[in-house]
Structures are given as structure tokens and as C-alpha cells.
Computed example of a mutant assay.
Amino acid sequence: MFNNKIIGHDFQKGILKRAANENLVSHSYLFSGSDGIGKKLVANEFAKLINCKSRGSVDSANLDSAACVCGSCAKIDKGIHPDVIYVQFEGVKSIKVEQIREGVEERLFLKSFEGKFKVVIVDEAERMSNGAQNAFLKTLEEPPPNSVIILITSNPDSLLPTIRSRCQLVRFNTLAEELILEELKSRGDLSSEDAIVCSKLSNGSLGRALMMDSDLIGWRKELIQYLMHLKPDSAMSIIGLAEYMPLTSDPEDMERMTLAFEFISLWLRDLMLIKTDSDKKGITNVDLIESSMQIAEKWDLDNILDKMGALEKTRNDIYNMNANKQLSFENLFIRLAS
């Protein structure tokens, strides 16, 4: 009984389903894995599974939880179940002790209203400060009866070893590129070519893939094509491309700049793969493979590695040294064009 629309993670879903069916539900879990791969969706389905009013009926073993119409599952889907608590501190870099006590502990120790289990799902648990983690440790050591705590993180090493040791680890892997491509095609929001490129840019994260649209895929293509035709002695072209980049400190511009660095890095990696006659399946920018092969013929491996080094230096200068963005990009594009 798991929503069949959650793609992948069959092994992890099987572990959780078996724990529920055999009454071996742990009091605390640590869901670990990359962002956007479905950890929170699985946590939500697990909360539905252990509190489902239909579980144990004749047909429940084969029941898709999305089709379950019991009151408990319906409330959890709507986010209004009184015994399933979602904890997410948006816009907070570091979760403090007081926030954990008010958002988790005080609510966790309240008596259940209607569910068999009181479930607390803490998203981005890695943002808890050391003080908050230490305060939370006592709750993990002495949880109230019939309670389940699910910590979700993309960076388990940021959690204290004592926190990790008291949770049952469920490690989620990135999704296969083929699964993401199939899902993108089924949604029909992208052309077939854009869906293929998007699946390759996703890094195994469906959430990341769904954040990309045809405009972003097109912007990536324009950026790389511009770099392909850039001449080191064309100052106007270099300045023009630098001005084309997102240069403000606005969050949207900063996110777009991060993607620009990634897109350029992946393109240089494509050139490396072409140059070394590696498996062409690893190429990301499949819509630019012919023009990339022409570029790869002109550059040697040392030249490509030098450009990769220049890219990383520029990234470090902007993010860590507070360098002037436009001047940094101009210097980078001179290196990439030479």
C-alpha cells in the first residue's frame, strides 16, 4: 500500500511496508538522500500506511494508497490530520533549540487524537543547530508511546553521530535517468528533445527536473552556443555575454548563476567525453553533440582542463571572495574563448 505514482525506491518502500505489516515500526527514522528524489513523499505515504483505517482489510495488501478513501488517509493527504505533524522552517538557516521544542517536542508529547501513531516529519533536519540537536536527543532516547519521528536530510553527516545512531537509516538513491525521462514525457510539458536534456540535467532528482522548463533549457542552449562562437579578440562579444549573465544578488539571479556555472561545467565535461572517446551516453547536452564534436577537435585535453580550472576559480571568486561578477565573467570568457 504505497502510492503507485511515487516513482522508484521500491526497496525502501518494501522495507517500510514490511515494518508496518509486521508491527515492527521503529520510533525514529532517518531518510537520507539527494534533494528532490521523493523522500518527503515516501514519508507522507508511510504516515498514511501506519495510520490507515483500511489496513488489515482483505483488499488492503494490494491497495494503492492514492485510491484509499479512509478518513485518515484523506486527512493526511490534505495536511490536516491532527496526529501527523510536518515541521519545516522555511527561510531559516539554522533551526534553534526553541524552534525544536515548540515545533516538535511540545506537539509530539500531546495525546493522539485519532491516529494509531503520532508522526512527526522534520524536513531539512541538517539545518538543526548543534544545540537543537542535543535538545532533540532526549526525545529520540525517550520517545512517547506510539510515536514515529522521521528526519529527512540531504546531508546526514551534518547531524550528530548520537542523532544518527538512534534512528533507523533509510538511504534513498538518485532516480534512474530513464524513470525521470518517462515521467517527463508522461506529463507532456516538454518536447521530446527537451525532456531528454532535462532528464540528463536532473542528476537523478525528479524534483529538480520538474523545476526546469523549456525556457531554461533554451537559455542553456543559447549560452553554450554563444560560448562556442566566442573569439578572444572580440571584446564586445565578451562584454556582451558577461552582461547577459545574471549579475544581481536577487535570489532568482543567484539561482540562475549557479545553473550557468553548472551548464558550462557539464558542457566542458561533454567535450572531455568526446575527446577521450568515452561512452556517448554520458553526454549531457545531446542537442549540441555535433557542434560540440567540432569544438572538441580544435581543443586538446590540457586546454579543456585549463578551462575547467578557470571556471572553478571564477565560481570561487564570486561566491567566496565577493568578486565583481561582471569582471569575473569577462575574465572567464576570455579564458574560455582562447
Rank of each mutant, 00 (worst) to 15 (best):
N322C: 08
N23Y: 08
D194L: 06
V84L: 01
N62M: 10
P156W: 06
V148S: 02
R107E: 13
Q12E: 15
R220N: 10
L288P: 11
A66G: 15
A20M: 11
L169T: 08
E255C: 12
S237W: 05
G204R: 02
A74I: 04
F113V: 15
Q12T: 02
R220P: 07
C68N: 07
L24G: 12
P145D: 12
N44R: 08
G115R: 04
I6C: 11
V25L: 00
K325S: 09
L184W: 13
E182H: 14
F31I: 04
E290N: 13
C73G: 00
F329Q: 01
L273C: 03
G38M: 07
N3C: 12
P161A: 00
F11K: 15
K111A: 13
A43Y: 01
V104P: 02
L49A: 00
R171E: 14
F261G: 08
G38N: 06
P82T: 03
N23V: 13
S158P: 07
I150C: 07
L332M: 05
V42A: 02
T248C: 12
P232G: 02
N23I: 11
N331R: 11
R18H: 14
N155S: 13
K298F: 02
N4Y: 15
I121C: 06
E193N: 13
I7G: 06
W267R: 02
E102F: 05
W219F: 12
K221E: 10
S26W: 03
D123H: 05
L63E: 08
E142I: 11
V119M: 03
M236D: 15
V42I: 14
L41Y: 02
D253C: 03
L206A: 04
F2V: 00
Q12W: 00
L140K: 06
I196R: 13
I50S: 00
G204E: 07
M212N: 14
L305P: 04
L206F: 10
K313W: 08
D233M: 12
F172I: 06
E106R: 13
A195V: 05
H9G: 04
I7L: 13
N21C: 13
K40L: 10
I95K: 01
T276P: 04
V104T: 07
L266M: 12
L301H: 03
N320E: 08
E262H: 08
L24V: 01
N3F: 03
K307E: 08
V197N: 07
F31R: 06
Q88C: 01
E114I: 11
A67H: 14
L110I: 11
E183A: 12
L30G: 00
N21W: 09
N21P: 05
S292P: 02
S165D: 02
P144C: 09
L159R: 00
F117G: 00
S278D: 04
V92L: 11
P82E: 01
A310H: 10
S34Y: 10
Q12G: 06
V286I: 15
V25S: 01
T276E: 14
H81T: 03
G240H: 03
E222L: 09
L41T: 09
S26M: 13
R335G: 01
L268W: 03
P144S: 10
K185E: 14
